[in-house]
Design a protein around this nucleic acid. Structure first.
Lengths: 224, 224
DNA sequence: GCATGAAACCTACGGTGTAGGAATATGCGG
DNA sequence: CCGCATATTCCTACACCGTAGGTTTCATGC
């Protein structure tokens, strides 16, 4: 409480100070500003100018709060409208994922790691499935393909968000340090490819792998 | 310790009670038995029948202990000998990854999430790079392809280890529950594919996605 | 034999999640 | 208008966490 008199008991004015929404959105902001580990019940309460235990009237516990953050991030995904062109739609879908992950780099591991059965969490699956079904895949194959694409997207984005923003090349010192590390490994193929391993254009890398999958899927589509 | 007289000061008998190795291996066992979160400095010390602070003579702190666990798991990977057949070698390599991840399901997220620059952590990269270089890829393309394959492998295994062992079909109740959840989502494509989404043969799924990547890479190899 | 330093223990601090209870305002039945 | 149930808040308390700093014991080198 900012003034010496802490408000005790139910607040005046009809409206409650706290709501589940306010807590979760503040938790999301906090996570992006200070990192996920900084999101503690007490720290979050401090930001909301509230006692820690008050949170528990609107949130079950910390673990489910993290799930709620996950869902909130997921609602931020802008599902693109399908164009009917298979490869374009897959690309657009994957990029929509990528955008939301990069918008919330600290929370991305949550989204990429926890699989929730909720509507929000299934919406992206629905989107990918739609693209594949519309392209002509039978339901069972579409599920396989969806899982493959999502596995790649998740693996890629996990690496990207945990690598930090400047792996691309502008951070010259970092590149130099990584080069030294790679060369020190004394692994012949690693040393040989060290210049390529030390830098990474994530966008380009993402598209490269995605294209591999798309090409193979298109081929599978032509020969059923 | 267990008898009323706690040993204090340096232990008698020349040999120290604790070593870094003993601590890390016990931490690994503990993680697999009780989960990663259960691996606390105090809990680990209890298992080793030792005071919590004694651990700090051999381990920097909890965070680097987790890194050491990661490395220990990574040393358990059995890198297969190359046969020269591209697709076989990629498969064998990916399966070697999968085996070590499934052998340590609780620690797998560590291995799949943390990217360390150590020799141990680079050895798998070296292995994949070798296969691709031997197949004829130039260094730069081999790096792209390596990243794509690893992204898929990481994404797949993360899902597999966090899904629990019995997603395959033997757990009938679980399948039924998942089916209900999927149908409740009311997403048309999800509902349509619900029977396929509710079960998952991880091995098969893994090979499916891997084959997609391999097919595309083989094609890229033929048309340079 | 004595100093040195390693390896163990103990104490203590500030942090965590959360159970249980006390206080206070609102809204409702009378 | 009063009284009461209920919702919402704060407070206290507990057990646990990571770890900084100090103390005790022992093996070893001079």
């Amino acid at each position: 409480m900012v003034d010496g008199k802490p408000r005790r008991g139910r607040p005046a004015g009809g409206k409650p100070v706290l709501t589940s929404e306010r807590i979760v959105t503040e938790a999301l902001v906090m996570a992006e500003q200070e990192g996920l580990d900084a999101v503690t019940m007490r720290g979050l309460a401090r930001r909301l100018d509230v006692d820690a235990m008050s949170l528990y009237h609107h949130v079950d516990n910390r673990e489910t709060l993290l799930n709620q953050i996950t869902e909130l991030v997921l609602t931020g995904i802008e599902l693109p409208a399908g164009t009917g062109v298979f490869r374009d739609d897959v690309h657009a879908m994957a990029q929509a994922f990528r955008r939301v992950a990069l918008r919330h780099p600290h929370c991305a591991p949550l989204v990429l790691t926890r699989q929730l059965g909720s509507f929000t969490a299934l919406a992206p699956v629905e989107a990918v499935l739609s693209i594949l079904r519309d392209a002509g895949f039978p339901a069972a194959s579409a599920v396989h393909a969806t899982r493959s694409v999502l596995a790649f997207v998740i693996g890629s984005l996990l690496r990207e968000v945990s690598a930090g923003p400047t792996f691309s090349g502008d951070d010259l010192g970092g590149v130099e340090r990584r080069l030294a590390e790679l060369r020190a490994s004394d692994l012949p193929r690693v040393v040989e490819a060290a210049p390529d391993l030390a830098v990474c254009d994530h966008q380009e890398e993402f598209e490269f792998g995605l294209d591999l999958l798309i090409v193979a899927l298109e081929r599978q589509l032509r020969r059923p």
